[in-house]
């Protein structure tokens, strides 16, 4: 019963007539009204993007006549242009974002576990540091990252500039950060009795972590993985200085080039590309939803 007061103040007077309907409305019906409002709010601006993608000569914001023309030329254009290897960008993005997401979840969960379950000197400082480091304004970060990666390139070209591994490594630098905190908070809500019981049963720390705790925190792992996947997919600044060859670039880097010169911006193709780029994110979210909200709670396992 998750009814909140904001909800029960009512948008119901007109709809309360039949008794069963009223009950249904109080329980879940009003949630649909909130849902519909939020769908309109969320999706409406994106209709402009869809309209621009379907209109072969469309501008993004030039007109309020949405869907004046419908055609799929922009999709064809972006998919078939040899200088814009959309397929390669797509695969690269999936690869980089998936590996980064999995690695981020893994490294973050390890750290969160130790922060949550162990007591050691430097723990407090460590927790503060990982969140403070990410607060440093990133205005000049590219200069430093380029310098670092170009130096690495001199010795180890395979993990330096213009490589996906190099890019993933830079992203993994952010694995310990606010996401770790999110996991840390979640770990803290798992009762320690569970660890203790397992310990009495003779399980080692690694076993407790991998076989017991991780299952209990699955929702937050899924959330962190999704957040990491989305932010990697849309990351542009670092990817654009590290990835040089068009066929190595990610969607964000490749697509931005289509519109970076305002005079020659191809908004139709860009919008078409952005829509296709959003598909993996949606698919992943659909897939992960059952882990995020499958009714799997600490209470349920006890």
């Amino acid at each position: 019963m998750n009814t909140t007061v904001t909800a029960s103040t009512g948008n119901s007077p007109s709809t309360r007539r039949p008794f069963r309907f009223g009950r249904w409305f109080r329980a879940t019906g009003w949630r649909h009204i909130v849902g519909v409002i939020m769908v309109i709010f969320s999706v409406f601006p994106l209709l402009y993007v869809l309209s621009a993608a379907l209109n072969p000569r469309g501008t993004l914001t030039g007109s309020n006549h949405l869907f004046a023309e419908i055609g799929f030329e922009a999709f064809g254009r972006i998919l078939s242009d040899p200088t814009n290897p959309f397929g390669a960008w797509f695969v690269n993005t999936l690869l980089v974002a998936s590996i980064t997401a999995v690695a981020t979840v893994f490294l973050g969960a390890l750290a969160a576990y130790s922060f949550s379950r162990m007591r050691f000197t430097g723990r407090r400082v460590g927790l503060m540091t990982i969140v403070l480091v990410q607060m440093f304004p990133q205005l000049l970060a590219v200069v430093a990252i380029f310098l670092l990666m170009s130096t690495i390139s001199d010795w180890f070209p395979a993990i330096g500039l213009n490589t996906h591994i190099g890019l993933i490594m830079v992203y993994m630098g952010g694995a310990l950060g606010v996401n770790t905190y999110l996991m840390y908070g979640f770990f803290n809500t798992i009762p320690r009795d569970i660890d203790e019981a397992a310990k009495i049963d003779g399980a080692g720390h690694a076993r407790i972590f991998f076989t017991i705790i991780l299952r209990l925190v699955a929702p937050i792992l899924a959330v962190v993985g999704l957040l990491s996947f989305i932010s990697t997919t849309n990351e542009f600044v670092v990817a654009s200085i590290l990835l040089i060859d068009p066929e190595k670039q990610t969607l964000a880097v490749g697509l931005y080039k289509l519109v970076s010169n305002p005079n020659y911006a191809d908004w139709s193709a860009f919008s078409a590309g952005a829509i296709m780029a959003a598909l993996p994110v949606m698919a992943l979210f659909l897939f992960l939803q059952k882990y995020i909200v499958g009714g799997l709670t600490a209470g349920a396992v006890k």
Partner: peptide
Amino acid sequence: MKVKSMGFNPRSMLMAGALATTAVLALAG
């Protein structure tokens, strides 16, 4: 345990992650 029925095995996923990470690095080397 109820979790089993979810068919989700974070451990194998994470081990895969660990291996992926190291494999990536090994490959790089």
